[in-house]
């Protein structure tokens, strides 16, 4: 959905200053991140989300109600002390459903980003390090993948493979590969000629070893920024597919899917629409703010601004 965040990251990222002392880079980054209130609040929010996802998975008893249990005598209850976010068209507790929905959204975000990051790093490293024909071949393939909007590719996948959140993950990860590949390739091109890389070559290190030991650690920070922002767009894309009714199978709880169903009840029960929407927006916002904070922390130039 947003190839631009990558451009933005590319433009403002300049990790050159830190290249010589990678260890101090992390400390300096953390110090500077700590000063960014918005990023710290977001980080705390994300940690809470992760805790919710993990705890509700292991101890579903902590939820006030069974998120899947319907009660036809208690449909559309207005939020109160017992049902904090009200109940939906089948009398299910919206609060509990949003809580378990956290797991779906977070895992989609994390898995999609993990897959695309891994593949992106591999392709980007190969392209950047080997250069020449390999480079143009890989980058041409990346161009192809970039030219199909992610939602559309996801939709095409679902048309072919059937509907489901797992296909959404495949599609979302595939379309984000080029973003990582481009970052890694760019960074590698700029550090390839550095003394210590050249030195490693002279000593006779293998290519793979050089990439992993000497080059990747230097690219890691930019990758982390991109990944944080990537999670937010993956969550947004997945919720969009859920909204279109292409996501989870009922009665599973997924934020986008809940929102899609709630469209019919905007008058009688606006809360069925408000809370899932807030859940998506706040989560995405938190990852965006954290990503921005990380980027600023890594890039002293943008911090000045």
């Amino acid at each position: 959905m947003d190839k631009t965040q990558d451009t933005a990251a590319e433009i403002s990222l300049s990790t050159q200053e830190f290249l010589e002392k990678p260890e101090s880079q992390w400390k300096s980054m953390w110090d500077s991140l700590k000063k960014n209130k918005a990023a710290m609040v977001s980080l705390a929010f994300i940690i809470i989300l992760v805790l919710i996802a993990v705890i509700t998975a292991i101890f579903p008893q902590v939820l006030p109600h069974d998120p899947y249990e319907q009660n036809m005598t208690k449909t559309f209850l207005f939020p109160d002390g017992r049902y904090w976010f009200g109940t939906d068209q089948l009398g299910r507790d919206i609060f509990s459903r949003i809580m378990v929905g956290t797991r779906v959204s977070l895992s989609v975000g994390v898995i999609a980003v993990a897959v695309s990051m891994t593949l992106g790093v591999v392709f980007g490293s190969l392209a950047g390090y080997l250069g020449g024909k390999v480079d143009s071949f890989i980058m041409r393939i990346m161009d192809i993948m970039l030219s199909i909007p992610s939602i559309l590719l996801a939709i095409a996948f679902m048309a072919a493979l059937g509907q489901g959140i797992d296909k959404a993950v495949i599609a979302i990860s595939l379309v984000s590969i080029p973003e990582y590949a481009r970052i890694v390739r760019g960074e590698i091109l700029s550090v390839k000629e550095n003394d210590y890389v050249q030195a490693a070559k002279v000593i006779g290190d293998k290519d793979g070893r050089i990439i992993f030991r000497h080059i990747l650690p230097n690219v890691l920070s930019s990758i982390i920024v991109r990944a944080t922002l990537g999670i937010s767009s993956a969550i947004l894309d997945a919720s969009a597919l859920g909204f279109l009714g292409l996501g989870v199978q009922p009665p599973a709880a997924e934020w986008g899917d809940m929102l899609g169903r709630a469209r019919n009840y905007i008058f009688q029960a606006p809360y069925t629409l408000i809370f899932p929407g807030l859940a998506i927006s706040l989560t995405v916002l938190a990852f965006n703010l954290l990503g921005d904070g990380l980027r600023d922390a890594l890039d002293p130039k943008s911090r000045q601004n």
Partner: peptide
């Protein structure tokens, strides 16, 4: 700008 990048299009549309 923050709201713009964080709010799902479909939610914004319905609102």
């Amino acid at each position: 700008a923050l709201i713009g990048v964080s709010m799902p299009i479909f939610w914004l549309g319905i609102l």
